[in-house]
Structure formats: structure tokens, C-alpha cells
Design a protein around this nucleic acid. Structure first.
Lengths: 196, 196
DNA sequence: GTCTATAAAGCGATAGAC
DNA sequence: GTCTATCGCTTTATAGAC
């Protein structure tokens, strides 16, 4: 579980990764400069290149992996709280919506913006993003299989669960409204229940 | 309908807008420079600022509106071909998937990358993106209402249709696979049919 | 590991001739 | 409307002292 120590008690490397993840979540890859990262992480530019000699590209990959672990933990927690996968989906969308609103509609998916900016142009970053999506789909698929759904049904539902969460969160962020996520939760529950 | 004249027969202004739309679709807002736009549009930098004195921001808004009209036309055509909205959704996802593959997985949604990069930082661009999503939802909602669905059901389904198309296209682009869109088409048809 | 200085290149934007 | 030159600034990345 995340220890959630205050940022100034973390090691320099971890502080840089978390700051990069948050900045790329809010601004994307291209708009986030190494200078801003070093300033907000309270590290020097020399330290950034000391820990990440591959520069901005290597840093983006680590940031995406951090976001991957973060959202995976969010999914695991939701699945642990709710035995029923359909009910867990409704809870997920509710929590995503309130988190988004509480951040001033700034903190969307920590992976998607960078993934889209990198598609077709930064293969290593794109691959890290694809691994994140694949990890999240696996968590959903396993939850559905534990609940008795057939393997092929669970496989397809896992795709649609993650993809609709992505699309609804993006839509909620741009519209500054919780409605798209609330609706997505109800529709996901209905779709899952239709396979029982 | 789109006249699809070759680009060199278009006026300078239209050539700049279409080039910007394509470049921001593939690379996003931040990675697309005015120099690259002017070169690929076969216009000079002076012409770009002549037609768009607001600079890059104004150009991005026009590019998003162009993508808005483009995808709206795609949806209208699909709805005209298929009387049944569920069948139209399957056709939509199939066409989106093949178009994405044929572009070498480069041409995703012409609005989304720029929308995410601008969220919370470029209000005018974000608003143009929200207007595009709203237009697309309206087209879906009206199609469903014409097919006999109740207003509130059609309203919610329109959100989920657009949001799942967005999420599945993004997922297909990052994974370089048609599967997410194919699955999305089947699930959207099933969800729509569940309200009959 | 941390820090400063700086190189090399690119950016958005502007000026002004034609 | 088109074109070129250039300003002022920022960017990624590196060098080298400490």
C-alpha cells in the first residue's frame, strides 16, 4: 500500500517521478519542461539527469509506470470493497468523478494525455502506456472471472470497462461535469448484469 | 458533403486549417509548430498570421471546429446508411478501426489530444472541444429519438456512445489493434438493444 | 549527489518590404 | 496577400566544479 509520506521526506528520485507524473497528468508530455519538474520536485537539473540519464523520454516512461501502479491500486481497492463487479463499477465512476471535481477538473487519467501525444512518435512511451492499459484490463478481467463470468465474456467486458472509464473521464474533464462518469457507471453495471 | 478537392486547389486559409487539424490530430497541440504548419500547408508564416492574427491558439480552435464538422459528417453518413441505431454503431466502430489501421495508427480522434492538453490551461480551446463532443452527442441522441427511444434514455445513451467510441479509439491507437473498437461496437449494440 | 553555467536549437510572434 | 528576417525567450541536454 502507498505509504503517503509528505513529499519532502521522499528520496530525490521518487520525488522527481511523482512530480513528473502529476505534471504530465495535468499538462501532458510536451508542455511539461524539465525545468518545471526540477523546480516543483525541489531538485536541481543536475539531479534529474543524474537519476534519469535518458532525459525527458526516460522520465516520461517512469511517470507512466507510476500512474499505472496508482490506478491499479485504485481498482484493486474498489474490487476489494465490493463483492459485486457491477456495484464496484458504479463506485469507481463515483470516486473518479469526485476526485476529478476536487482537483478543479485538472487530474484526469495520469497516462492518457502522454499516451496520445506519443502515439506513433515515441514508441517506448507508447509501449509503457499500452502496458498500463493491459494491466488495468487484467485486473477487471480477473475480478469478473472470480465472479463467475466466462473467460471470453470477461475478456471483452474488461476492454469496454477500461475504455468507457477512459472516455467518460476525458469527457467529464473537458465538460467539467460529473455526469458522463455517473452515466458510465450505470451503463457498465447494466452491461455486466446483461451477461449473468 | 465534402468536396474533397486536392489540397493545392483550396484557398490558403482552408489549406492552413486542414493541415493544422491533421497535424494536431497526429501530434497534439504542443508538438505542432507554426513553422511545420506553414511548410506542410505550402503557405508562409506571414500568411498564417494574416489569416489567424490570434496565432497558434486561434488556429487550434479553428482546427478543432474542422475536426468537429468532419466527425459529425461521419456520424450522419453512418446514421443515414443504417436505419437501426445499434447496427449503425457496429458499422461506425468497424469504419473507425479500418481508418485508424490504414493511417498506420496515426489518425485518432482529431479533437481529443488537443482537448486533453488544453484542459484547465486554454479555456477557449477546451470550450471548442466541448462543443464538438456536445454536437456529436446531439446527433446520436436525435438518431435514437427518431428510432423511438425515450428522451432520457437517448440522452444517457448518447453520452456513453460518444465516450466509448472515444475510449475505444484511443485504446486501439495505443495498442495498434482493431479489437477494442470491434468489442465496443458489439457492446454498444447490446446496450442499446437492452432499452427496447 | 548536488549545483551553476552554458551550449545549440527551436519556439511563437512581429516588422516591414514588396 | 505573400515573403523574409529577426527578436526575445524557452527548451533539452551537457560540462565541470564542488
Amino acid at each position: 500500500m502507498g505509504t503517503m509520506r509528505p513529499q519532502h521526506e521522499l528520496g530525490t528520485r521518487e520525488r522527481i517521478v511523482r512530480t513528473t507524473s502529476r505534471l504530465m497528468q495535468q499538462q501532458g508530455y510536451e508542455a511539461t519542461g524539465l525545468k518545471q519538474i526540477s523546480q516543483e520536485a525541489k531538485a536541481t537539473l543536475g539531479s534529474v539527469y543524474h537519476f534519469f540519464p535518458g532525459g525527458k523520454r526516460e522520465l516520461a516512461i517512469e511517470a507512466i509506470r507510476h500512474g499505472d501502479r496508482e490506478f491499479a491500486e485504485f481498482l484493486r481497492a474498489a474490487f476489494d470493497r465490493d463483492d459485486d463487479p457491477a456495484a464496484a463499477m458504479v463506485a469507481c465512476t463515483r470516486d473518479l468523478a469526485s476526485g476529478l471535481r476536487e482537483s478543479g477538473w485538472l487530474d484526469g487519467c495520469p497516462v492518457t494525455t502522454t499516451a496520445l501525444e506519443s502515439a506513433g512518435r515515441e514508441p517506448a512511451i507508447q509501449q509503457a502506456a499500452e502496458e498500463a492499459y493491459e494491466n488495468w484490463r487484467t485486473l477487471v478481467r480477473e475480478k469478473l472471472e472470480r465472479s463467475g463470468f466466462a473467460a471470453d465474456v470477461a475478456h471483452d467486458l474488461a476492454h469496454t470497462v477500461i475504455n468507457l472509464l477512459e472516455g467518460a473521464e476525458l469527457s467529464a474533464q473537458v465538460a467539467r461535469s460529473e455526469a458522463p462518469l455517473e452515466i458510465a457507471g450505470r451503463h457498465l453495471a447494466r452491461l455486466i448484469d446483461s451477461y449473468r
